[in-house]
Write a protein that binds this DNA or RNA. Sequence first.
RNA 1: UGGGGAGUCGCCAAGUUGGUUAAGGCACUGGGUUUUGAUCCCAGCAUCCGAAGGUUCGAGUCCUUCCUCCUCAGCCA
Length: 597
Amino acid sequence: MSEKTPIPLGSNFIRAIVEKDLAEQKFNLKKWAGSPGDALHQAAGHIDSAKIRTRFPPEPNGYLHIGHAKSIFLNFGLARDYGGICHLRFDDTNPEKESQEYVDSISDAVQWLGFGWQNGNENNLYFASDYFDEMYRAAVGLIEAGLAYVDAQSADEMRINRGTLTEAGKDSPFRNRSIAENLNLFNEMRDGKHADGSLILRAKIDMASPNINMRDPAIYRIRRAHHHNTGDKWCIYPMYTFAHPIEDALEMITHSICTLEFEDQRPFYDWLLDNLAKAPTEANGESKLGLIATPVPHQYEFSRLNLTYVVLSKRKLIDLVEQKYVSGWDDPRLPTLAGARRRGYVAEGFKLFTDRIGVSKADSWIDYSTLEDCMREVLNESAGRRIAVLDPIKLVIENYEAGKVEDCFAPNHPQQPELGKRIVPLTKELWIEREDFMEVPSKGFFRLMQGGLVRLRYGYVVKCTGFEKDAAGNVTMVTCEYLPDTKSGTAGADAIKVKGNIHWVSAAHAYECEVRLYDRLFSAAHPGEAGTDYLTQLNQNSITKITAQLEPSLKNAKPEDRFQFERHGYFVADKKDSVAGKPLFNRTVTLRDAWQK
RNA sequence: UGGGGAGUCGCCAAGUUGGUUAAGGCACUGGGUUUUGAUCCCAGCAUCCGAAGGUUCGAGUCCUUCCUCCUCAGCCA
């Protein structure tokens, strides 16, 4: 054996950072008062029993998608693995786009993936909007420290004076207002004395900074909009740039993990927190504490997930839903977690997937089939086997007694005999798969063909004797004779070895049922790439509804029951459209098929 | 063209302060088991780390130059 210790699956640079921080006892003196709050509040608490704190901070302006699953497993997984706690925090600082529906769907998705926010008697579910008072105080603190000012330039003027990527910006003519004046104006903004967009609070940093994010970023805007959480209490709202670091700090987050596009925002993140941590404020009085507690959080960035054949952008997903290209946020073709769930994807599969793809800072495209493989892998273990004929034609056993019903025993799982067997009835007339018979067999085909032998799975070996066609030349029926001594499970079963093995359902007993076959939503691997319009790249065959003949036991399937339909793939009883005694099935993913057709 | 990032096998991704034959997974290929052309098992799979120079006894790991890609100019997040 090698002397090197094997790297555990899921090792990545962020875990390395956490392990280093922990080894250096970086957070050993960090306090936590049991709830988020400023420095004074946290100082009254105890040493935090959570070794680290992370957070998953979605904006409730859309449904979560597969990309979020990566972030959820990262943040919650880190907390779980290192004795920490992960907060679920809704980053709801823009009232115009956010709603309760999204809050609910996001909460559902997080729980579906197996995570929660109740830790002991601590409920770590938070809203950025709960911190609006603290954020206001922080803004005032910044103004008092001479680090923020109220600008009266229009949005256009601000844009022009921001400069370009290669040219420095110009100072606003309002940049040097007195602290008193700024304080007064900011209070007036809050009190609704100024029109939307007429004034804006900006951090005062450096209009010549090569990093555009440091050119006096806007931090508070006037926006008379009803907020899903705070109602009409505020007419000014903080910007993400300003709000997010404060949210993290108030929650005593140790590792604030986000995606790469926020990387050049990190200097502002640090600038803000350093200043708020050291600036004593009137509110904190003689404590000499800054507004926020130390140690302050640090931001780390990883590359977001790119998946082929889907779109993972909120804007595009919203388009698909609102323009009715799909049936809703939970359309099984959508890469939303709600859609994936209805499609039959499982949380364990997402866990496997995120472990498998890793976390790094390199841009990458994961092939959609990797996700499918993960689902197959999990479902293969967990899904019971059933029989379904998706494209039925009749098979008549000529030498089988009409009216006779014989029990055949089908194992519920080939690798898990403890799951037992179920009875499937055999009769003279069966449904079999159209593609299991070939009038002119192609090379390598070893299923039903004229004069050939094939086993009816869990039943008898039969010999094909003939077939019938309609006027259009389509095969309408196949006939055969069975070999009475070859029944599965009997002594004679192995007397005749056949390579072909096909599934079937008794026509008299079958449950006729709608089954939806799904395929990828887009026909292009990279929808919208290179200026193309992703809406023109939708796969026209992403859904096919068929009428299938299923084994009778399937009639009792409950919504979200998952099965492997043998030789076909994994299917789930639809969560929404199934009714008791009449489930409908969605194809989650096909089985791998080494016999390329 | 300014700033910030990234380039290791088809797809991901490990690679401590430079030390011998460049982890692992997926995919793929070959073989075996199998009443799912599924699963499972075994084996194979980068003399090379974006390129070119350089330092060194020794470099994916250090230096130099170059190339490619991503990202930033919302009062969105």
